[in-house]
Design a protein around this nucleic acid. Structure first.
Lengths: 343, 343
DNA sequence: CTGAAAGCGCTTACAG
DNA sequence: CTGAAAGCGCTTACAG
């Protein structure tokens, strides 16, 4: 294999070496059966000898499509990259794209100029569809891409926009079933450690909690808010226990807050699950790292990635672009933290 | 702004609407001053009205370069995506690319077919240079890219290859200075919690430890190995303390192992730093989360990202491609865990 | 089974 | 200051 550094080998060069026309050489690479044995062999030999790799830019130009899908991920500065759910989402997307023979291309814009450059790049025919995993300043991005006819889908419901396509997890159903599980275990005085009030997903979870309590004629007044992280969960739990000593169960809107809450309970001498049962949300790696292991609402993140991909790839085939919406149901993952009988 | 969905506007359409030639329209977009006021205004108006975005595939084809740099990141399945160092690395790369006006394009291949497709994609002229942040099966990738004249640089030293370019952190110097710091604090019986024996970076750190001890005529026989995570650090520390009760300091090859070790010490009633001083490696977020805060060897990860980018972009300009190597020195980040005097 | 020719959209000499 | 023409490398009718 002779590889000439720095020079890109073209189809024409391969054809010349093989002694055929470019059209015939092309047919070999596009698996067109209408090529003689000798021609095929000569072309293949020439291609190997020269180290030929088709130029994708030229191919994209002619085809009008790139066989690749852009995925815009949060800027590295935001903690989202470190969210344990993130790799699962990426894996779901990657699997589905891989199955469709499409190339996944990731972008992590960090600044406004980055976003503008990205807009030009994506709108300029480098991708056939775009998956947006961040809402950061991307409204104009999404609008301009759609104006160019490039299908766009969001992961999660973009705040205040109903004219765009998205796949989301049913946070309401998750909060509902987590709370119903605690009730089914015989718990009655159930507290909720909620996320930030401005967060749509967090308030959906809280709404699920209130509905489940209401359905069972239980009071849902024990609610504290945290910032989804471990420390704020610890603080929230201490506050809740100071408020009421009768708490026999807690639904936390994230596993991290649940872990913090378990710590607070240990400090205050409340046993999990004997005195207080606790269930988290996300089913992150944390859930199996606590003692006892934490029951949790498992988000179908891989499925979410796959469905987003499936939808946006289909959209890129279709003419009309109706906004597509899909809400996936979460599943309970029951572990020891909610299993013992109430005291 | 009228945006015709699905149809890409071309330069020719803009030119026609503006009543000028494609060449003149092109001059407007390439900031060529040799255009009359009227022509310029007409072209700009037409471009806005039609929503023109230049086709990058065509531009790449003509220019023979894409103004973008590929970054191959570890597969989501490997935990590396969740490494707190990872976003810092991405940020460093992104900042440098952004400053050069280049587009960052990320790839996270998950399977062998993914890697093959990626190889075709990268070699096919979609990127001007490639930064490899993973060694996973990428030897053939690297070789084929270089054969095509596409510069490649590794983050970290690829195992067993000296003919490639890389930027790495000086793990040996890090281990040396961490240990010297402990000695300077008056500690004498110093243990090392090392990483896996097969890891190059981990054994460089251990070698730094041994040299520092040797230089001060201290014994360096207290070494236990862990898997770089918290739990294995805890186990290693328990083992070390069982082996010798005189240990007055520990150098752990990762912050996570140091955190586990601190836990083990607390369980066994050894106070940090009064009884035992401890220093970690990475200066990850963990280091400020422990009590007391953990001294650590800070890896210059953003710098590493920037230098890798700078080098590989320069390489893509140069004709000859000599392998480039750069080793960055780490810095000590001193916190309370090593500050009190030895007992 | 084969190949000459036109074209994808942008860019670049070249000639005015 | 302006534009006709050729070309980047691949793909696609079209005619044999």
């Amino acid at each position: 294999m002779e590889a000439v550094s720095g020079s890109a080998i073209t189809l024409a060069q391969v054809a010349r070496l093989a002694g055929v026309s470019r059209t015939t050489a092309f047919r070999v690479f596009s698996d067109n059966p209408a090529v003689s044995q000798e021609a095929r062999a000569a072309v293949e030999r020439a291609a190997v000898e020269l180290g030929y790799v088709p130029n994708r830019a030229a191919k994209s130009l002619v085809a009008g499509r790139s066989e690749s899908v852009g995925v815009v991920i949060p800027e590295p500065r935001s903690g989202l990259l470190l969210d344990p759910l993130f790799p699962r989402l990426l894996r779901g997307i990657g699997e589905e794209l891989s199955a469709s023979g499409l190339q996944m291309v990731l972008f992590a814009p960090q600044s406004t100029p980055d976003i503008q450059r990205l807009e030009q790049y994506l709108a300029g025919g480098h991708v056939d569809a775009v998956i947006l995993l961040t809402f950061h300043d991307s409204d104009t991005l999404s609008a301009r891409l759609q104006a160019r006819g490039i299908p766009v889908i969001y992961g999660g419901r973009p705040p205040g926009r109903s004219d765009v396509s998205f796949v989301d997890v049913d946070n309401h159903a998750g909060g509902l079933s987590a709370t119903e599980h605690l009730i089914a275990q015989g718990r009655r005085r159930i507290a909720h450690i909620a996320g930030p009030v401005h967060s749509r997903s967090a308030s959906d979870r809280a709404q699920g909690f209130r509905e489940a309590m209401w359905n069972s004629a239980l009071r849902s007044d024990l609610v504290a808010h945290g910032e989804m992280d471990r420390d704020s969960g610890e603080v929230a739990m201490s506050r809740l226990l100071a408020e009421s000593h009768e708490i026999d169960a807690v639904f936390a809107a994230s596993d991290a807050m649940a872990a913090g809450a378990m710590w607070a309970m240990q400090v205050l001498g409340r046993r999990v699950p004997d005195d207080v049962a606790i269930i988290g949300f996300d089913d992150s790696p944390l859930a199996t790292a606590t003692r006892p292991p934490l029951s949790s609402v498992r988000q179908p993140i891989e499925d979410m990635g796959r469905e987003m991909t499936r939808l946006v790839v289909n959209m890129s085939g279709a003419r009309k672009q109706e906004p597509q919406h899909m809400i996936l149901g979460p599943e309970l993952q029951i572990r020891q933290s909610t299993l013992a009988a109430a005291g």
